[in-house]
Design a protein around this nucleic acid. Structure first.
Length: 305
DNA sequence: AATTCAGACAACCGCTCCTTC
DNA sequence: TGAAGGAGCGGTTGTCTGAAT
């Protein structure tokens, strides 16, 4: 069909975002709310593609995002959901509202896929499954905890005595958004990964907002049943795209632009009606939450909002 | 100390889906 | 009902950083 590009290729800036650009974008969204991305570059004068603006906001600037340091529970959720849903990162991300699909996708590609490969390799060596059995991650009986505890880049199960924190730490550079990220950030020359810059940006942003403390994000909501979008999509279905939608409203409503929840909304509802497996996902998540007593996984990430 | 290599992640590209007219 | 436009998603690439040599 040869659709025209979403924006003029000429004069469109690419590459890492600068603090100035972030400020402009955040200011605009504060005023108008997320959505109507096509108008963002026009209205703000940003020399960025509308998609780039949306991506920047969705993945890095919007409040409530948790970055880096995936917990064992989160890993388990990702692995399990990936085995059930495939590479539907937006759908998977909807189960981890503070994570972005891009973040999950990257984490999967750089960490979990390798772990699974190793696990499968180990399984092939030490415990070859009988023909026809489902010993892979695709099995609905996949024991993610087992995988998490047995497989890492080095130990092949040797770290069974290691804490999960240690395990995860081995796989991650300190996140700029992690609680102890300040020193790391100082050593980074990349603005895009600088929590300092972004938090400074958003600090003023927050102060100017009438937003009360954001319970949804300040609590360990990703480990409570309410995290399940199947249970809470109604409140997440706001589009936040209307021009008069305040930022406050957009945050509380979890607009569609935030992690693709809106898009998944309908789909999820359909699945809810049509597909039994998701029920088992819910069940599993709840079981998982109970099993881990998730309180110790309450994130110590300094919330920007 | 310099160079090379691999890992991690931010960002872009193209496709698909959804909405509007 | 079909076409057009916008938004979202997933795959992929480019760049940066730290480790290894």
């Amino acid at each position: 069909m040869g659709r025209p590009p979403c924006c003029d290729k000429v004069g469109v800036k690419k590459g890492p975002w600068t603090p100035e650009e972030d400020i402009i974008l955040v200011s605009y969204i504060q005023e108008h709310g997320p959505g109507n991305w096509r108008s963002v570059p026009v209205s703000t004068g940003l020399m960025r593609c509308s998609k780039s603006c949306r991506l920047r906001w969705t993945n890095y600037l919007r409040p409530g995002i948790k970055r880096g340091n995936f917990t064992p529970h989160e890993e388990g959720v990702i692995v399990h959901l990936q085995s059930l849903l495939g590479n539907r990162w937006a759908a998977i991300a909807s189960y981890l509202p503070r994570r972005t699909d891009n973040d999950i996708k990257n984490y999967w590609n750089t960490h979990l896929k390798k772990k699974l490969r190793k696990q499968q390799a180990m399984g092939a060596i030490f415990a070859p499954p009988p023909p026809g059995s489902s010993a892979t991650a695709a099995s609905s009986n996949f024991d993610h905890h087992d995988m998490i505890s047995k497989v890492d880049d080095h130990g092949y199960g040797a770290h069974a005595a290691c804490s999960n924190t240690e395990l995860i730490a081995r796989h991650h550079r300190p996140s700029p958004f992690a609680a102890d990220a300040t020193t790391d950030v100082c050593s980074s020359s990349s603005y895009a990964s600088s929590v300092d810059n972004i938090s400074k940006l958003l600090d003023g942003f927050m102060k100017s907002s009438t937003l009360p403390p954001l319970q949804n994000y300040s609590d360990c909501d990703d480990v409570k049943p309410v995290v399940n979008p199947l249970m809470s999509f109604d409140r997440m279905s706001g589009t936040g795209s209307s021009a008069d939608a305040s930022f406050t409203a957009s945050v509380h409503q979890q607009p569609a632009s935030m992690g693709g929840g809106g898009c998944y909304d309908d789909e999820t509802k359909q699945q809810q009606q049509q597909q039994a497996p998701l029920c088992s996902i819910e069940q599993w998540l709840f079981d998982e939450a109970a099993e881990l007593e998730l309180s110790d996984e309450c994130y110590s990430v300094p919330m920007l909002f």
